[in-house]
């Protein structure tokens, strides 16, 4: 999306206060030419290098020509390499998601939603219960009856990690990349160990959120998408096992 567009402008990640081409990167994407002159996409993560031709490092442009770019055109916003437009998308929607999240946090805290629906009770915190919940998920076994109308334990844990972990991390690491914010809130640099560390964490966190969304969509699909989506919007939820 727009973040990948921005990443593509410099497809390398570092740790610390500084990081540019001459500095060692934790992750980098690029293209080389093989002996036949074909583009070879390479992605290096730490000591491991992967051939990722077609997706990462080297992919085809709109005309079908091979070009060196981090993420492929179908994954970036806009498709063409256009950092300025990517940043416009990124920051407009950053404001929207931060505003939405702030309202959600406010509502969750004031209404008791976090305490009643997200927080794990003593029984749910028991390792044996968590293990059984994991096993249920692996077997795609859905809760039935009244239990189906509540968040299950893994679901609660995932929401807690996103709401109180990944989302604030996303916001703070994003702010740390702004030189102005670093001047206004110098503790940000100490918190993450530098602008480049923050950039790396921002990237990793974004990937984890994408993973969360993918798993979440999968779970909605396997547990009856019509019923789930309708209940998300209208609150009308038919408890599995009760349908006529």
């Amino acid at each position: 999306m727009s973040g990948l567009q921005i990443f593509n402008a410099h497809p390398r990640l570092y740790w610390g206060q500084y990081g540019a081409n001459a500095d060692p990167a934790l992750l980098e994407m690029g293209a080389v030419q093989d002996s036949q002159g074909r583009a070879l996409g390479l992605t290096r993560v730490g000591p491991w290098t992967f051939h990722t031709t077609g997706v990462l490092g080297a992919s085809k442009d709109a005309q079908g020509n091979w070009t060196e770019r981090g993420f492929p055109r179908w994954a970036t916003l806009p498709s063409e390499q256009d950092l300025a437009t990517g940043r416009h998308w990124h920051f407009m929607f950053a404001w929207l998601i931060v505003t939405n999240s702030a309202l959600y946090w406010l509502y969750g805290a004031l209404s008791g939603h976090f305490r009643k629906d997200l927080w794990l009770d003593r029984r749910e915190r028991h390792p044996r219960h968590i293990l059984r919940d994991i096993w249920d998920h692996i077997r795609l076994r859905r809760p039935v009856g009244a239990a189906a109308s509540r968040y299950n334990t893994l679901q609660k844990m995932a929401y807690l990690v996103v709401v109180f972990g990944l989302a604030p991390l996303m916001l703070l690491t994003g702010l740390t990349m702004s030189p102005g914010m670093d001047a206004a809130c110098p503790f940000l640099l100490d918190l993450f160990g530098g602008r480049q560390s923050a950039r790396t964490l921002h990237f990793v966190t974004a990937n984890l959120i994408v993973l969360f969304v993918a798993v979440h969509l999968f779970e909605v699909l396997v547990s009856g998408p019509w019923n789930e989506v309708r209940s998300m919007i209208t609150g009308w939820f038919v408890i599995p096992g009760d349908e006529p």
């Binding site: 998308w89 702004s178 206004a184 110098p186």
Partner: peptide, 28 residues
Amino acid sequence: RRFLQSGEILSFGAQRLLLAGQPLAREF
């Protein structure tokens, strides 16, 4: 595009508000 760019009004305003006292960049 105008809609997307209007996000800058917020970013610009927020930065100018936070940086009104002209805080100093970190020296290394």
